[in-house]
């Protein structure tokens, strides 16, 4: 069983890495064509085709990740099966990029300029994924080291050691890897992030182009984003109460960041009520997205209780 898991992990890298490389090449082309389109108004057809190819490559890569997770479920022999969600560790940013590719494609139908800007954001995100958070280069390193640790403990035959290692891993499995909240809380937030990236692009155009149609587009995506952001954040609370009972998590950096992001989006939606506040509304839409990126990065730059979950 252990060997089957190791083989599956290697196979995920062998199949996924070329896909990721192609996606990064397409990203560069996408960025170049998008900039050219915004400057000249030409090559939108090519841009749309590249966006479709990028979305297809990322979707294929995601299927490889699904397959790898199924193999983990089948082959890792622990007290209970590991139903590991598809958006942990170095897969998180990849999942965000995948969702953004779909939203970028959708936004092209609404407005070609917003679509082109979303494509630039996607290109930047895909490049970051390739360079810093490539899920195929070393699939799930933290989980892998925990699985290795568990099998090493089993290999010693020392019952005390096995119980100790199993107890530690079991806590992680129950409250993190196999938690039903992991199937709701993170994906809802990532769909919100992808949707709000389009709001950001539209707000930039609203500020620069001063055309109200960009505000309508921004609001259209903000509605989806805000709903999922709220629901996703709320769903995290009962989970936090259960998993972090007795630990210090009030005013934790990630929670601070999430509240900051939510109140800023609330402020954005309030300012939208008056059209004379359109400039403030557009600025807030941009600031909100920067706050969103900052909140995402807080896990890494300001470690707190959320960082333990990484």
């Amino acid at each position: 069983m252990y060997q089957d898991y190791i083989s599956a992990r290697e196979m995920a890298g062998v199949i996924g890495q070329p896909l990721m490389t192609y996606a990064s090449v397409i990203s560069l082309m996408l960025a170049a064509v998008s900039v050219y389109y915004l400057a000249s108004g030409k090559w939108f057809g090519l841009l749309a085709r590249l966006l479709k190819v990028q979305a297809a490559l990322l979707a294929l890569g995601f299927l490889v990740l699904v397959w790898f997770h199924v193999q983990i479920y089948n082959y890792v022999d622990f007290i209970e099966r590991l139903a590991v969600p598809l958006w942990i560790e170095n897969e998180k940013l990849y999942f965000w990029a995948l969702l953004l590719s779909f939203f970028a494609l959708h936004s092209c139908r609404k407005d070609s300029k917003v679509g082109a800007s979303a494509a630039i954001v996607l290109a930047v995100l895909s490049t970051i994924v390739y360079l810093y958070s490539n899920p195929f280069l070393e699939p799930l390193p933290k989980l892998h080291s925990e699985i290795i640790g568990w099998y090493s403990a089993l290999g010693t035959g020392d019952q005390m050691f096995i119980q100790q290692a199993g107890g530690q891993f079991y806590g992680r499995v129950v409250y993190y890897y196999n938690s039903e909240y992991m199937w709701l809380h993170p994906p809802m937030l990532f769909i919100a992030y992808a949707s709000l990236a389009i709001t950001f692009a539209a707000c930039v155009f609203m500020l620069v182009g001063r055309e109200m149609r960009f505000d309508e587009i921004a609001y259209g995506y903000a509605k989806i984003g805000y709903l999922l952001l709220t629901a996703g954040m709320l769903l995290g609370y009962p989970w936090a109460v259960a998993a972090w009972s007795g630990t210090s998590w009030w005013w934790d950096p990630k929670i601070n960041g999430s509240i900051m992001m939510w109140v800023l989006y609330s402020a954005y939606l309030h300012t939208r009520i008056y059209d004379r506040l359109w400039r403030l509304s557009a600025v807030l839409g941009i600031v909100c997205f920067l706050a969103l990126v900052f909140t995402y990065l807080l896990t890494y730059i300001a470690p707190g209780i959320h960082s333990v979950a990484q």
Binding site: W251, D252, P253, N256, G257, M260, V263, L264, A291, A302
Partner: peptide, 17 residues
């Protein structure tokens, strides 16, 4: 007021970090 709460969250994060 919402922005003020946002700013407080940033301040708290700085203090925490």
């Amino acid at each position: 007021l919402l922005a003020a709460i946002g700013a407080l969250c940033v301040y708290a994060t700085v203090i925490y970090t």
